[in-house]
């Protein structure tokens, strides 16, 4: 019969168990409950990858299950004062930045803790995601995740799905935002459609060259490369509207209904 380890070691073993469960694994494998894993794959985006018809290739990734909330963003600006309203440089966030908060480090009645944070610039959103060891999702990642509903990974061909998504866009923008935590889609990701507009990492890359067909010879030179990007899935108005809105933004802009979530590689 094997000798039992001394009592102090058995005790230490018990104490170590919970530590080993997380600390013993590589950090990348440690589950972050705020994120869901998405398998990725070939995806028919409204923006063909080659500007003509090629599908997008989406690598497996993690996506935050909900948009970042006011409470979470408050914790961020408290820990990183350079991102507080009134301190941030004008080139990184415009005058509307967090202007619905009652103070630089206080939410107030117009910004409830569980509402998605809005009035944040792309630079601020990016800086926040870095603190979660993450980045902003690419457009393809976002669009791919948002194509799913509760039972299907791609619900876009369903007229009822389109109708539901479109309905949100008709909602007046001055009504108070609901809290995060809507219905989960098939990946466990929530609020992609129907809560806020969301920043993506490549917001300034979506429509490069789209107008070059209509321009005269001299102006064609403004764009280098394969030329115009054509939009696909033209019946998917809601997604096309998102592309148009994101493309119209500058990185320092903030709006009433524009928030964000973060993504990480798998």
């Amino acid at each position: 019969m094997a000798r039992r380890p001394p009592r102090w070691l058995r005790l230490a073993g018990w104490l170590c168990l919970p530590l080993m469960a997380t600390g013993g694994m590589p950090v990348a494998l440690a589950a972050d409950e705020r994120y869901a894993a998405l398998p990725g794959g070939e995806f028919a985006s409204v923006l063909p990858a080659d500007g003509k018809a090629a599908p997008a290739q989406v690598a497996p990734f993690h996506l935050r299950t909900t948009p970042v909330t006011n409470a979470e963003f408050l914790a961020f600006v408290t820990a990183h004062p350079q991102w507080q309203r009134g301190r941030v440089a004008g080139v990184l966030a415009d005058a509307g930045y967090l202007s619905h908060w009652v103070g630089p480090t206080a939410l107030g009645a117009a910004a409830l803790p569980q509402q998605p944070v809005t009035r944040v610039s792309w630079f601020a959103a990016q800086a926040y995601c870095e603190t979660e060891g993450a980045r902003l999702p690419t457009w393809y990642e976002w669009e791919y995740a948002a194509a799913a509903d509760a039972t299907r990974s791609d619900a876009r061909a369903d007229p009822a799905w389109r109708e539901r998504v479109l309905r949100w866009y008709g909602r007046p923008s001055n009504t108070a935002l609901p809290a995060v935590g809507g219905e989960a889609n098939v990946y466990g990701v929530r609020d992609l459609n129907g809560l806020v507009w969301e920043w993506v990492d490549d917001f300034n890359a979506l429509l490069v060259g789209v107008d070059s067909r209509d321009q005269d010879g001299a102006d064609k030179l403004r764009f280098c490369g394969a030329g115009a990007i054509s939009m696909q899935e033209k019946e998917n108005y809601a997604t096309l509207m998102r592309v148009a809105m994101l493309s119209a933004l500058k990185a320092a802009n903030t709006t009433n209904n524009l928030g964000f979530r973060c993504a990480k590689p798998l």
Binding site: A49, D50, G51, A54, Q57, V91, W122, F123, D202, F203, N204, A205, L206, L207, V208, G209, L221, R222, F223, C224, G225, A226, G227, I229, K250, A251
Partner: peptide, 20 residues
């Protein structure tokens, strides 16, 4: 690029579409 207001997008063949 975002700060300077320049747009670019990498294509599957490795080339870029970009504003000049």
């Amino acid at each position: 690029a975002a700060l300077l207001g320049i747009q670019y997008r990498q294509l599957p063949d490795g080339e870029f579409n970009h504003s000049s």
